[in-house]
Computed example of a mutant assay.
Amino acid sequence: MIVQACLNGARPSDFHPGLPLTPEAMAADALACIKAGAAELHIHPRNGDHAESLLAVDSTLAVVRAACPGTLVGVSTGAWIENDIEKTRACISNWSVLPDYASVNLSEPDAPRVMELLRSIGVGIEAGLATVADAERLVALADHQKVLRVLIEIEEQERSAAYALAEGIVAVLARAPVTRSILLHGFDATAWDFVRLARQRNYSTRIGLEDCRHMPDGTLAADNAALVAGAVAIFRRI
């Protein structure tokens, strides 16, 4: 059961004054988040124009790993990043600095092939599930147990509906059964609800500017490290 720091995601540059968009800024934030109690990192590398880029994985990971040696670092493989199936595959195949794991959204058409590709180069997989249909697609795969963990990520903003969706996904996983660990998180209005629910269920969770910019009391977070410290405090409560 861990708290993972998600530093930037696909957020635009004006989302928060402290959003890290360069390798150096991501590395500095990563180190601060580890000091605040995060066990792992999830980042979306950006190119020189600050756009998400799978081509920027090598250079970004090199800088982040130098700042946080020994810390597991993951990246996204979201189809929107390159917006081209063949280019996405080519970028992943050509990584020379490998992430420890990469998230794959089961809602995306090429997800099974991306998962196969990641396994072939020795990168762990976070299987991203946002809907019950995503969960059903995962468990239908013959190699669904060959993932590092299951990432339940709920975008629904109304709390009761979001909880119901998460329960539906968990039910599908339980029936399979899928025995991999679960990391549960929400976005924006539900981010802290799901941090608390993850603590209650003994799941891992994540927090950072990819998921929200406000603290549990509604105030604007100073930075990623403040968000991580808030989640760690929830996880440490008895």
Rank of each mutant, 00 (worst) to 15 (best):
Q4Y: 02
N8S: 06
N8L: 03
F15K: 08
H16P: 10
L21V: 12
A25D: 07
M26K: 05
A32C: 03
A32T: 02
K35L: 09
A36G: 00
A36E: 01
H42I: 05
P45I: 02
G48C: 01
A51M: 13
S53Y: 11
S53T: 12
A56Y: 01
V57M: 08
V63K: 12
V64F: 02
A67G: 06
P69C: 08
V75I: 13
T77W: 07
A79H: 06
A79F: 09
W80A: 04
I81P: 00
E86P: 00
K87G: 00
T88S: 12
T88C: 08
R89T: 00
A90D: 14
C91M: 07
N94Y: 04
V97Q: 00
P99E: 09
Y101W: 13
V104N: 01
V104T: 01
E108H: 04
P109A: 08
R113S: 11
M115L: 06
L117F: 06
L118Q: 04
V123D: 09
G124C: 01
I125N: 06
E126V: 06
A130F: 10
V132F: 04
V132K: 11
A135C: 09
R137A: 14
L141M: 14
A142G: 14
D143W: 06
L148G: 08
I152L: 10
A161K: 15
Y163C: 09
L165E: 15
G168T: 07
R175M: 12
A176S: 15
P177E: 09
V178R: 13
L184Q: 12
A191I: 07
V195A: 05
L197K: 07
L197W: 14
Q200G: 04
N202K: 11
Y203T: 04
Y203F: 15
T205A: 03
T205V: 02
R206G: 13
D211I: 08
C212I: 05
P216T: 02
L220E: 14
A221Y: 10
A221T: 11
A222Q: 09
N224H: 09
A225I: 10
A225C: 06
L227D: 08
A231C: 02
I234Q: 14
I234C: 14
F235L: 15
